[in-house]
Write a protein that binds this DNA or RNA. Structure first.
Length: 431
RNA sequence: GGUGGGUUACCCAAGCGGCCAAAGGGAUCUGACUGUAACUCAGCUGUCGUAGACUUCGGGGGUUCGAAUCCCUCACCCACCA
């Protein structure tokens, strides 16, 4: 079941060098020796890897950057190893703010399976340089504590480990750090060495926040194997207005359709800031340099058309959920945000659109406040009343002004569209 | 092991017996503007609710008419000393 998107993906042939294209796309934030890397990436096929830890049931857009980066290297002829961290997920990569809560082994194992499926979707598993899945649990679980401390631990200096940003940030905070999380960097370094020895893997990629961990592996291999291997850290994607990328209403944009609907993801991309949209096209699509430069002109000349945002949304949703889901998201968006009266939208189209939204079944006579809570547009009745009082709620396109209003009028097809704010919507079906 | 400091709402952070549902800042959310932008400005942000009531300040217990504020105890964090 090969991903139909693969056929349309390619690197931009207007670049003489894949490395140059990666630089142009802004994907190289930090790396080991750039001269050597350029030769390596533009040369004979190499094996490289990137790891994903099972800290949630799905990957999110931050991980997607890595998947696409891996895919570009694969299109360049290189061989990817997709590591899902069955063991590192049990330990937890130290976050700068606070200690992680440990998940049960059963939970982690279940998430490993799900992430493996996602990784397999975005990288071609067939052919000469097909992606191979690996799991660090395979080589770390047989290790005894004594072996770990004698054979691995001796290669690590505590002074060096303490200097890693993730660790020092925690030591300087009130949260402190457990020995468990402190040890994380050793495990990741060990992964790289294992993959180097088994598959001759000579490049690890990851987010720049992982740089300390990436370089830990490079150092270990240099010391214990006397070999020179590489690492690339991609930039953390940031919004120009300073807010965190990849969050919608505080929730992460997940790749799993159950956790984040194709419609929600489409809307997320459609709302990309003008100042960011060109950078996003470079990172998240396979559009060529020429095409992206055309969009840059469109953004400058007629930003109100949002041509770049629309294309970005189409491309990315197609990559993640497929062409059919992307078209449904577009149709739903046009039905719900179109200029016309909602009552004039074709009932079948409207019903389909509402199924893309969070939706519930309710009876007429239910209070609008209760509907807001049931659809999770509001967190409580108080919140719902507040929203209505602020003039932020509309039902079927008509602003609700009475906090005690109830559902009465329905649109053709026996449905209703509930809206909070400008762009948070929910569908209501009647039985 | 000892001593001292700390644990407050989404985050940071005031409060130190009643005037505390709890200052201030950030963030989110809503409104105006607009392009389903950005910027800016304004407002909201425990729950239920007509009033008003109810639950909350790490967990548990106690003192008191009354506790986020005092006491005991448990857990966790930080610092210094051993």
């Amino acid at each position: 079941m090969s991903n139909p998107n693969f056929a349309k993906q390619s690197n931009d042939s207007s670049f003489d060098s894949l490395w140059d294209e990666l630089v142009w796309r802004g994907l190289i934030h930090v790396s080991t020796d750039a001269e050597e890397l350029k030769k390596l990436i533009d040369g004979e096929p190499i094996t490289y890897y990137c790891g994903f830890d099972p800290t949630a049931p799905s990957l999110h857009l931050g991980n997607f950057v890595q998947l696409l980066f891996m895919r570009r290297l694969q299109l360049g002829g290189h061989r990817p190893l997709g590591l899902v961290g069955g063991s590192t997920g049990l330990i937890g990569d130290p976050r700068p703010t606070a200690e992680r809560t440990l998940n049960t082994p059963e939970t982690v194992a279940a998430w490993v399976t799900r992430l493996q499926a996602q990784v397999s979707t975005h990288l071609d598993t067939e052919g000469e340089n097909g992606m191979r899945l690996v799991n660090n649990l395979d080589w770390t679980s047989p290790l005894s504590a004594i072996e770990f401390l004698r054979d691995i631990g001796k290669h690590f200096r505590v002074g060096t480990m303490l200097k890693k940003d993730a660790v020092s940030a925690r030591l300087n905070s009130d949260a402190g750090i457990s020995y468990t999380e402190f040890s994380y960097q050793i495990l990741q370094a060990l992964d790289y060495r294992e993959l180097y020895n088994t598959y001759n893997c000579v490049l690890q990629t990851g987010g720049s926040d992982q740089w300390g961990n990436l370089i830990g592996g490079v150092d270990l291999i240099r010391r214990s194997e006397q070999a020179n291997v590489h690492a690339i850290g991609t930039p953390l994607i940031t919004n120009s207005d300073g807010t965190k990328f990849g969050k919608s209403e505080g929730n992460a944009i997940w790749l799993d359709a159950e956790l984040c609907s194709p419609y929600a993801m489409y809307q997320f991309w459609l709302n990309t800031d003008d100042a960011d949209v060109i950078d996003r096209l470079k990172v998240f699509t396979f559009l060529s340099r020429a095409e992206i430069e055309d969009f840059a002109k469109l953004v400058a000349d007629e930003p109100f058309r949002r041509a770049a945002q629309k294309r970005l949304a189409l491309e990315t949703v197609t990559l993640v959920h497929g062409a059919e889901a992307a078209n449904a998201a577009i149709a739903a968006s046009e039905a719900l945000f179109g200029q016309g009266n909602l009552a004039e939208v074709d009932p079948a189209t409207l019903a389909t659109a509402l199924r893309e939204l969070p939706n519930i079944t309710a009876e007429t006579g239910t209070s609008v406040a209760q509907l807001l809570v049931s659809t999770e547009l509001c967190s409580s009745l108080g919140d719902a009343r507040r929203s209505i009082g602020q003039g932020g709620v509309s039902l079927n396109g008509v602003k609700v002004t009475d906090e005690a209003a109830v559902l009465t009028d329905l649109l053709p097809g026996g449905v209703a569209v509930l809206r909070r704010g400008k762009k948070t919507l929910a569908g209501i079906f009647t039985a």
